[in-house]
Design a protein around this nucleic acid. Structure first.
Lengths: 337, 337
DNA sequence: CTGTTAGCGCCTTCAA
DNA sequence: TTGAAGGCGCTAACAG
């Protein structure tokens, strides 16, 4: 059974011509007698010849592959971003190696190594929540391999990246809550070392400031976003002397978790407490009540990241030149707040 | 800036020893003087040496890579299956190249070609809804490259595959509807050429039969599962002389769509019409009312598929031997039915 | 314990 | 229009 894959050599032998001629015919080089070319192409097709991309990569010193590393592959965010990246990668003649780190720092490091070992021409990355050390990425810089970060980016490396305006998105949603009459707006924030958590928190504070509402520390809670912690934080918030009348969570899954918990306690949304999230997950429109949130142009982010990367691959003087692409968010008002 | 990646040759030159010795030290071969080995390892580490997997694959005739092709990457099903496959692939020393066909036949064909060109050691596949011709897969068979299908499998190829017991799952959920007093249970089925649609439809019919309920053709509707068609079918069903009091949809997204439509018409669920789905998507528990459905061991499917594939890669006599792994489903009763 | 040689499949000079 | 030779980075076989 076990048969080998056909090679150029095989075709050459079969047709009694030199390997170079076969190669030329296959790569569409003009200087090949047309009948020779026809014979080669015909045989290649019949035998289902497939160029060996491994050896091609070896000799061309370019695998025509771009790697993408995401912290998670479940949920509605990253798959969509990936599909955006996939789209442009394909159009530009690259294919994607997708890998995910499962929010685990060590796995992220391993993944970068694998990508490097596979000689990807470039890398698109969204880091894990754990990642605080970026040496595995600077290794790419040292070797001149371009990397583009998106969504979760690292500030210490000033690499090219594409992000949404988290500050502005948070500002808009808090402003909305205020304008619908909320006075005590609590905020559940993400880990402090994540840029996007901070940006959103800043946007939140800025909105309060604009409307002369003093921000109170007891209403701002930092969380690792585990269900357990969210429940704990929510309980603390509710048992405050003067509990919040609105709650802005750093992302939709957290907001959804909050809604479930609130409902189970018999607290009405949005009458008693308004709830808002961030990122417009696919679930958000189906939950009851539908979640007010901020929409991100997720697919676009993937596309832009891939476009930037391809540019850098083609023109190495662009690689690792700090360049931040900021995309806009859009407020989506539903019934939860 | 642009610096080359370090090679074995480089460190051989640097250390004034032969390439083979370096190679041996790097691959942990015993017969290397320990101080030589130390020197090599130390230098390799310092210079961030990464074996070139392209050339390794070339010489070993195995890329240590397994490809996975799924019809879509958005939604909760495939990402979870992928994570399962990823897990065991990694454990077994393989890495995954993930690609998705976006439910497009031609893209699936292209993807298989790319996989083959990249010399994957094996392939895990779930086909698109469009796929009716399987020659791009038999090409793998001809070349002796193992393929394992999962979820959406092809019956014409009798290849190894892992599926859930769709028949039994549908049977269980319809039986549940009957035992809760429903008499006229409609079914929205998927495309007829998809095995899983048929299996579920058969399970549905069998359950009716068991309880001596005649199945009526007007209650069974085949659909391409576009939102538009679902709405149309639902309208027809509702305007029947004697409309259904329960509706079993071939999958959760369809059931969720139905719930939204029903609610918008002011029809109460489950009082007026019970709704049930299949596959327990992540949204299903959040929708109002929470969806009664059948849970599939999705992650397990990914794991099992990968395990079967690795086995076949290791022992080529197993490759393409028809072997069907059937996993069990679990009834999940929520409020919708 | 170490070095030499050959070759994986392909492309790219250079020469005919 | 074609062929021969060399090399991409690595391992394997065969000597020392």
């Amino acid at each position: 059974m076990k048969r080998h894959q056909i090679t150029i050599m095989d075709i050459a032998r079969e047709l009694q011509i030199s390997k170079s001629t076969v190669s030329r015919a296959l790569t569409g080089h003009p200087s090949v007698k047309s009948e020779t070319r026809k014979a080669v192409l015909e045989l290649a097709h019949r035998e289902e010849y497939q160029k060996n991309l491994l050896s091609l990569g070896l000799v061309k010193q370019s695998s025509k592959t771009i790697g993408i590393i995401v912290p998670e592959i479940i949920g509605s965010y990253f798959p969509i971003a990936i599909s955006g990246a996939q789209e442009v990668a394909k159009k530009e003649g690259y294919h994607l190696i997708i890998s995910y780190s499962d929010e685990d720092y060590q796995m992220e490091v391993d993944n970068t190594k694998i990508m490097m070992a596979n000689r990807v021409d470039g890398l698109i990355v969204s880091i894990t929540r754990q990642t605080k050390d970026f040496d595995h990425f600077s290794a790419f810089k040292r070797k001149g391999i371009p990397v583009v970060f998106f969504n979760r980016v690292c500030d210490q490396l000033d690499a090219p990246c594409v992000i949404v305006d988290d500050y502005d998105g948070a500002f808009k949603i808090v402003e909305h809550l205020i304008s619908s009459g909320r006075k005590r707006i609590a905020h559940i924030s993400g880990p402090d070392h994540l840029l996007i958590s901070n940006k959103r928190k800043e946007g939140y504070k800025a909105a309060l400031r604009k409307y002369d509402i003093a921000h109170e520390d007891e209403l701002i809670r930092t969380s690792d976003l585990t269900m357990h912690q969210i429940a704990k934080i929510l309980d603390e918030l509710l048992s405050l002397a003067s509990p919040p009348d609105a709650l802005f969570a750093v992302n939709d899954p957290t907001a959804i978790e909050v809604i479930q918990l609130l409902k189970s306690k018999g607290i009405r949304i949005p009458e008693d407490v308004a709830v808002a999230g961030f990122s417009n997950n696919s679930m958000s429109q189906y939950i009851d009540p539908p979640l007010t949130t901020v929409n991100q142009p997720v697919k676009k982010m993937g596309q832009v990241a891939a476009e930037m990367l391809v540019q850098q691959i083609r023109n190495e003087s662009l690689a690792w030149k700090p360049f931040v692409q900021v995309l806009n968010t859009e407020l989506i008002v539903r019934h939860s707040g």
